[in-house]
Design a protein around this nucleic acid. Structure first.
Lengths: 225, 225
DNA sequence: AATGATCTTGATGAGGCCTTAACGCCGTCC
DNA sequence: GGACGGCGTTAAGGCCTCATCAAGATCATT
């Protein structure tokens, strides 16, 4: 289910969007100002962000920059008609699309679909096999050759997914922490040690001598294929 | 240089876009109908497509589908005001963005920048090969032809990365010290001697007679390809 | 409200990396 | 020819990072 976060200070718009989006099977969360909006992005990790530029506490482009600093989720911007310069500034700050109020719900929904479709990563090879286990990215499932399906916790899965998508490449600790826990946790490398140990215990044939989930001391981790 | 293909049947618009885009260093090609437009996409392989929906020979969504069948280049659609349903249909057919005529050139340019930025995600880093080993900058991996992967420490990797990025060029000791250890260590050239020796021992076929990691006495170091 | 799973946090020991110093070599300059 | 400075090499100690374990905190579910 696609998760949408709406940041807007007008209750009527929030209400209209919540109703229309929920009816179309989106999972909707809302925020009424820029500060709580930024917090909500880090906390909820939505798939799309709908952002009103006219917020009470922050300039719209600031919010965009704050989000773009660490994630590339699609941002659709709302603003009243006639503010050409703001429109340009928002797009340059990293927004993906722009809708002028008042807007038709059909148009917003179409732009939403387009934004989600664009951001959906190319389903290149959703299934990755190693000698001892198989990772199915599409089905979110891990199977071990000798003992069937493996249960992973949400956090374990997130980490494994990032490593598998970057298989062969080194992934820095910063990148992992940022994508799983958010930008405020960039230095909590202890989390990674704990979770990598758990993943190894669940996946590696010998957890103490990893063959697939490798540590590159001082740099990060690498999924070896 | 970014290549833009404009498909529109109105000469005045073609002319305006050609002038404005060329002035901003885009490489512009044009087509006046859907048939020749599709041919032009296949032939010119543009980086972005600007498409007018009101073409004489084909429906706009058909053109979009025809392009989307085999490539994922960004498509910005132009159409006259008020055609909500066409707008929705175009976005659902696979268009990336939508601009209503008459449009401000600033807005179109901003959307163009946004579209190009989105479509160019990974500035793919090169893989540099020598006769005896391979450096993959994206994967942060070094492979030696005769003995597989080589493990480098973070400092070793940083130095090698700088030298490889400047391959063929001389890199001064000051530049290396500054980028790896910071500006306070500009005179600690002993560090470089230690680490260059280690890199040579790990990478060179004969560490005592370096063929790739060359010293330029009194100046700095050079990665020879 | 209680239970179990999951996430966070801290402590500990081991290993590896960085730093530093010492020494020998080679070239240049006096 | 000798002194000097830059470079290559080696080795040892300190420190940082990693792996592991365990307990407390938080969350979800009943």
């Amino acid at each position: 289910m696609t998760r949408v976060l709406v940041i807007d200070d007008e209750p009527s718009i929030l209400r209209a969007l919540r109703i229309n989006l929920s009816a179309r099977q989106y999972e909707v969360s809302t925020a009424a100002d820029g500060t709580s909006g930024l917090a909500a992005v880090a906390r909820d990790r939505p798939d799309v962000l709908i952002l009103d530029l006219g917020l009470p506490d922050m300039d719209g482009t600031e919010v965009i920059s704050g989000v773009r600093g660490w994630t590339s989720i699609p941002i659709i911007v709302l603003s009243v008609w006639g503010q050409e310069s703001m429109k340009v500034a928002a797009l340059d700050a990293g927004a993906d699309d722009y809708v002028t109020k008042p807007f038709g719900m059909d148009e917003l929904l179409a732009r939403l679909r387009a934004a989600v479709r664009r951001s959906a990563p190319a389903p290149d090879e959703p299934v990755v096999k190693t000698g001892h286990f198989t990772v199915d990215l599409a089905a979110k499932r891990v199977t071990r050759a000798d003992q069937g399906d493996i249960r992973l916790t949400p956090t374990e899965w997130q980490i494994l997914e990032i490593l598998v998508r970057n298989r062969g490449r080194l992934v820095t600790q910063r990148q992992l922490l940022q994508e799983v826990w958010g930008p405020a946790y960039e230095t909590e490398s202890n989390y990674l040690r704990v979770y990598l140990a758990q993943l190894r215990r669940k996946l590696e044939p010998e957890a103490s001598q990893p063959r697939y989930l490798l540590t590159e001391p001082g740099m990060g981790y690498r999924f070896q294929v």
